[in-house]
Amino acid sequence: MMDTLLWLAVRALAPDTLMWLRVYRKNQPEYFKENAMKADACYPAISPGTGARP
C-alpha cells in the first residue's frame, strides 16, 4: 500500500519538478555549467571541521 502511494506521489510531482528545473536552468544557466559542481567540491564555502570560511 505504501509503495503504491509513494509511486503515485513521485509520478504526480515529477512533471512539475522537471518544469521547474527547466525554468530555473533558463534563468540561472551558470549553475548548470559542467564545471559548476566541481568547483563547489574543490572549494567548499565553509572549511570542514572548523566552520571557518577559506
Rank of each mutant, 00 (worst) to 15 (best):
P54F: 14
T4W: 14
Y24D: 12
K38P: 00
P15D: 04
C42T: 09
A41Q: 07
A12C: 14
M37F: 05
W20L: 15
A9V: 04
C42F: 15
D40T: 09
T50M: 02
L5V: 02
L18T: 00
D16G: 11
S47L: 12
P48I: 01
K38D: 06
R53L: 08
F32S: 02
L21D: 03
V10E: 07
D16K: 10
M2D: 12
R11D: 03
P29R: 13
A9G: 06
T4H: 13
K26C: 12
E30A: 13
K26S: 08
L21I: 05
Y43N: 07
E34C: 09
L5Y: 06
L13C: 03
P54V: 06
W20G: 02
D16A: 09
A36T: 13
D40L: 10
P48Y: 09
A12T: 14
I46C: 02
A9Q: 07
T4R: 14
M19Q: 09
G49E: 03
K33Y: 06
P54L: 11
L21N: 04
Y31F: 15
K38G: 03
Y31L: 14
D3K: 05
D40Q: 07
L5C: 01
L5P: 00
G51H: 05
A39P: 00
G51S: 00
K38C: 05
